[in-house]
Computed example of a mutant assay.
Amino acid sequence: MNKPDIHQAAIRDVAFGTGVKVVEPCNLYGCKIGDDCFVGPFTEIQKDVVIGARTRVQSHAFICELVTIGEDCFIGHGVMFINDTFSTGGPARGHKELWRETVIGNRVSIGSNATILPVKIVDDVVIGAGSVVTKDITTPGTYAGNPARRL
């Protein structure tokens, strides 16, 4: 019988600002988390992610590589960020040159279980719970739905 290669959730190689609160278990590696941030349990934040000061990341969120989140943001429970657009008709399978970046502005609130594809979102935006953001958001306001549209 074969044994699996087991990896444990861990916090490693993270640049933390002052006053950061992290609730374990979570998997944080190679990222930067600004001053006075909160990271809830069962969260994964991958390498090269940058999270601005005073941002809250609630439980069960997944923030993949190539994501930058501004200051004073709220990332709700179960929010998923995506960096692979399946541009070749299937998954990139580790070909990072096919991945795309996401940039979230300041004072952006993303409701629980939203999915954020590779996009740019300006400052002062609210994304409704369960929404799927498929295109850049260039005007402040409230957006909801699948695909997310301005209300």
Rank of each mutant, 00 (worst) to 15 (best):
N2E: 15
P4T: 09
P4D: 14
P4V: 10
I6V: 15
I6S: 00
H7C: 02
A9E: 11
A10S: 14
A10W: 01
I11D: 00
A15G: 07
F16C: 05
T18D: 15
G19I: 03
G19Y: 00
V20L: 01
K21L: 14
V22S: 04
V23T: 11
V23Y: 14
E24R: 15
E24W: 06
E24H: 11
C26K: 06
Y29H: 12
Y29L: 07
C31G: 09
K32A: 12
I33Q: 00
G34F: 04
D35E: 12
C37V: 03
C37W: 05
P41H: 13
F42W: 13
T43N: 02
E44F: 08
I45S: 05
K47A: 13
I51R: 02
G52S: 08
A53L: 01
R54W: 03
Q58A: 10
Q58T: 08
F62Y: 15
F62D: 10
T68M: 08
I69L: 04
E71L: 02
D72K: 11
C73I: 06
C73Y: 01
I75V: 15
G78L: 05
M80D: 10
F81M: 09
I82R: 01
I82P: 09
N83T: 04
G90Q: 11
P91K: 04
R93C: 12
H95M: 12
L98C: 04
W99N: 09
R100P: 00
I104L: 06
N106S: 09
R107L: 01
R107F: 03
G111W: 00
G111P: 02
N113K: 08
A114R: 01
A114P: 10
L117N: 13
V122M: 08
D123W: 01
D124S: 09
A129D: 03
G130E: 00
V133C: 07
D136Y: 06
P140Q: 07
G141P: 04
A144Y: 13
R149I: 13
R150C: 12
L151M: 15
L151E: 08
